[in-house]
Design a protein around this nucleic acid. Structure first.
Length: 108
DNA sequence: GACATGACCCGCG
DNA sequence: CCGCGGGCCATGT
């Protein structure tokens, strides 16, 4: 595990501001960071060495659908995260988040 | 130093 | 409504 770059750490710090029961999107994250590349955020996520500190599962797509946790993490890994999110107060509507817009955390 | 990939998003057909 | 292509920033090889 190599130390993430400054940009990645910035993403983590922003993500850490998200309280339990709230979620955020790649777009909102990138914009709050001052960048317009949502992909860069995802790139940092995959390198995420701060697993419990950085709730990457709290990051979802702009459409309210869960991120790539299901695309390649196929298995119980995503199921566990989904359950954890529900425990935090986030309800899931299949692969999407229920009232996702309402639970969206807005950076201030 | 340059090329290729990505946990993405938006627009067009 | 569904499918495909282009573009954005950062990271890794």
């Amino acid at each position: 595990m190599k130390a993430p770059t400054a940009f990645a750490q910035r993403v983590y710090q922003q993500l850490r501001k998200v309280p339990a029961g709230k979620v955020t999107t790649y777009k909102a994250l990138a914009q709050s960071l001052g960048t317009k590349s949502y992909q860069a955020v995802g790139t940092a996520m995959k390198n995420n060495p701060y697993a419990p500190e950085v709730p990457c599962h709290r990051v979802v797509k702009t459409n309210g659908m869960i991120g790539g946790f299901m695309g390649y993490m196929t298995g119980q890994t995503i199921e566990k995260k989904r359950q954890m999110l529900q425990t935090e107060g986030i309800e899931f509507e299949g692969v999407k988040i229920k009232d996702f817009e309402k639970k969206l955390f807005q950076f201030q």
